[in-house]
Design a protein around this nucleic acid. Structure first.
Lengths: 193, 193
DNA sequence: TTTTATATTGAACACTCGTTCAAGTCCAGA
DNA sequence: TCTGGACTTGAACGAGTGTTCAATATAAAA
C-alpha cells in the first residue's frame, strides 16, 4: 500500500500554531515554518495545500485550546463567576510567562489581516464569537447561582467581558507594570456588578 | 543655491500615515508608498532615511492628530466627562466611516511588531502613554467639576478608559452590529461611576 | 524479492521586498 | 547666459517570498 506518515499531523499543527501565534501570519515565512516544524515545502503543501490552509487549521487549534482552558477553569471551581475570573487571570499571566504571545491569536489576526485574506479574517471573527458565547453560558450559570444580578443580560455581559479581555491583553503588551494590569482585572470585574 | 523641494513634507507624511494606518507596517510596501505619495525611492530615502524612519514620523503624526481631536472635544463642551465620552464616540464612529482603519494605529503597531523593530515598538508604546496621560488630565478635571467620585484615582481611571477604548475599537472590527458597540460604550462609562 | 502507491525531498521558479546610486533635472546667484 | 549644487529619477541589486514538481525514499502487498 503506502508509506506511513512520518509526521504526526496534530503535533505539526501545534508547533505551527505556536510560531504563527508568536509572529503573526505575514511575518512567519514558509522557511521559518519549515525549520520550526521540520518539514520540507513539498510535504507541507501536500498536507495543508497552502500557507493559508495551514494557518486556518492553527486558528482552530488555538480556539480549541482556549475553550479547553475555559472548561478546565469551570471544572476547577464550583463558582461560575470565580471560574470566569480565574480564566481571565490565567490567560493574562500565561501571556506574560509561557505563551508565545501576550495577545489572543485570534485578535492579533483580526488586527493584522485585511480583505486580502478574507477567509482567515472571517474564521477568526467566527471563533471569537464562539468564545464570547461560551462566556455568555458561564455568566448565565453565574446568574442562576445568584452571583450576578438577574436583571442583566448574560450575552451583553459576555460582550463586555470579551471587549475588556481583548483590551486587557493588548494593554498588558504596552505596559511593563504588573500592578497596573492586576488593577485592571479588578476594575473589569467590578463592571459586572 | 538649490532646487526647491517639490514635495510638501507634512502633506507627504499625512498621506503616508493614512496608508500605514490602513495596511500596517509590513503589509505596506515601498512600492505601495511610492504610488500613494507620488515620490520615487531616491527622494523618499533622501527625506526619511528608511521605511522605518518614515513610519516613525507617521506614528508621531497620528498621535498628534489624536491629541488634537481630544482637544477639540474638550473645547466643544463645557463638561469634561461629556468631552471624554464624545471623544470615544467620535473615534469609534470615524473608524466605521472615514478613518483608514477602525483600530488605533498605535495599537495596531504594538500588535504587529516585535523586537525586530524595537524602536518603532517603543515609540508606539510611548505615544499610547501620552494619550493615557491626556485622559488622566481630563478625568481629573471631571473630578474637580464634581462629575466623578473624588475618591477615585484619575490615573487609574484613565488606564481603565485606555484599556477599554483599545478593546472597543478592536471589538468593533470583529463585529458588524452597531448596536452592540453602542451598548459597549454605555457600559464602558458606567464603569467609571 | 519484486512491485506499487504514497510520502518526502530540495532545487528551482517567478515574483516582490527594501535599498542604492549614477545620471538627469531644475533653479538661484554670478 | 552660464554655473553650482541640491533635488529627483528609475533601473538595478541581492535577498527573501510562497509555491511547484521531478526525483527519490519507503514500506506494505503480491
Amino acid at each position: 500500500m503506502a508509506n506511513k506518515l512520518k509526521h504526526d499531523r496534530q503535533l505539526v499543527i501545534n508547533q505551527a500554531t505556536n510560531l504563527f501565534w508568536e509572529k503573526g501570519f505575514h511575518a512567519t515565512s514558509m522557511r521559518n515554518l519549515q525549520d520550526h516544524i521540520d518539514m520540507r515545502p513539498g510535504s507541507i503543501y501536500a498536507a495543508f495545500g497552502s500557507k493559508e490552509g495551514l494557518f486556518k487549521e492553527t486558528l482552530q487549534c488555538y480556539a480549541d485550546g482556549s475553550l479547553k482552558r475555559l472548561q478546565a477553569s469551570v471544572e476547577a471551581t464550583p463558582s461560575p463567576l470565580a471560574a470566569m475570573k480565574h480564566f481571565v487571570k490565567l490567560v493574562v499571566q500565561q501571556g506574560k510567562n509561557q505563551a508565545p504571545n501576550e495577545m489572543c491569536m485570534l485578535v492579533k489576526t483580526v488586527s493584522e489581516l485585511t480583505e486580502e485574506n478574507e477567509e482567515l479574517l472571517e474564521e477568526s471573527k467566527r471563533l471569537l464569537k464562539v468564545m464570547e458565547n461560551a462566556f455568555a453560558d458561564l455568566l448565565s450559570q453565574a446568574q442562576q447561582a445568584g452571583e450576578i444580578d438577574s436583571s442583566k443580560d448574560p450575552q451583553r455581559l459576555a460582550r463586555l467581558i470579551q471587549m475588556q479581555l481583548i483590551g486587557l491583553r493588548l494593554y498588558a503588551r504596552t505596559s511593563n507594570s504588573e500592578n497596573s494590569v492586576n488593577d485592571l482585572i479588578d476594575d473589569l470585574f467590578n463592571c459586572l456588578k
